[in-house]
Amino acid sequence: MAKNISVTIKFWKQNGPKEKGHFDTHELKNIPDDTSFLEALDIMNEELISEGKEPFVFDHDCREGICGMCSLYINGTPHGKTERGATTCQLYMRKFKDGETITVEPWRSAGFPVIKDCMVDRNAFDKIMQAGGYTTVRTGQAQDANAILIPKDDADEAMDCASCIGCGACVAACKNGSAMLFVSSKVSQLALLPQGKAEAARRAKAMVAKMDELGFGNCTNTRACEAVCPKCETISNIARLNREFISAKLAD
């Protein structure tokens, strides 16, 4: 049975990428603890609007943990602390204590400038994908799907790598603002599958070069990214990316 709790939300307000931001606070009283965290923010926004204030802006969409849109840094952890990988929208109020102050911040990284409040611009991820996160196949060119045999283990591992939702929690958690986990997940998926082999070398080089160009930091293997990844991507992907990248460079 749900019980009610009261919490204080301390949330980041910022008008634009160049503006100076600050924290605002709002008290939420008697929230049923089976409410999701984002629903609690909805309630807060309703209260703010009823006071004639502008609501707190944050990204969110599917609210079932798959679109990768939600991106809040809650009490020092991207997406908030949960036992297993979960996104902000899968966080429930039962994870908080009655009377707790919850600090909500945006992803902070040079690669993700703030648009407003806790909404950040993650266009850089699209640009990295455009640099090489695909197989060059035109519509209608493909052979029969079963013509390529893929061992189950390879397919399963590729699937795990492909689970990345592109939320950016890895970058947000990394003290180096590095996007390696994101990039390596895509590179790994395609490196594990025969379909991706033809372009593997080009892909690894192009995606890494784009990532560097866009101002993301380097990987120093702190593992903060895998600790917060809502889809449990692991740094073995990063090792694979390094392998692909080094062998591509050596082949040049």
């Binding site: 197989t135 519509t139 209608g140 493909a142 029969d144 045999l149 893929i150 061992p151 397919a155 998926q189």
Partner: peptide, 21 residues
């Protein structure tokens, strides 16, 4: 054709042990 197309793109559909879809 859709399945063929998606497999060529690298969509990791579930496979059987023999490597078939």
């Amino acid at each position: 054709d859709i399945i063929d197309q998606c497999v060529a793109q690298g969509v990791p559909f579930a496979r059987e042990y023999g490597g078939m879809l």
